[in-house]
Amino acid sequence: MSVYKKERQVTQSVSGDEVKTMATTADLPLTEDRNELVAALLSAWLPAANELSRMMSAAEYADIMPITVLVHPQTGETRE
C-alpha cells in the first residue's frame, strides 16, 4: 500500500453535534445541514492531522520551531 494511502486510510468519526459545539466555540453560526457536511470532511481529515501532531510531539523534534515566514539561506550555503 502506498504511503499516500497510509496517510488517510483511517477515518475518525466526528458528529454533527460535535461540529455544532466547535462552531459555537468559534462563534460561527452553522445550520444543521452544514454541521453534517463539515463533520463528514473533518472526519476524513482529522486522523492524518492527529497523526502528524503525534509525530511532531516526539522528543526528537522538541527543538523544532514552526515556519511561519521562510527565511532562506544564501544559495552557497546549500552547496557542498
Binding site: N50, L52, S53, M56, S57, I64, M65, P66, I67, T68
Partner: peptide, 10 residues
Amino acid sequence: HYIQAQRYRA
C-alpha cells in the same frame, strides 16, 4: 494542528 504542521515544514 496548525502549529505542528508548521513545525513539520521546518
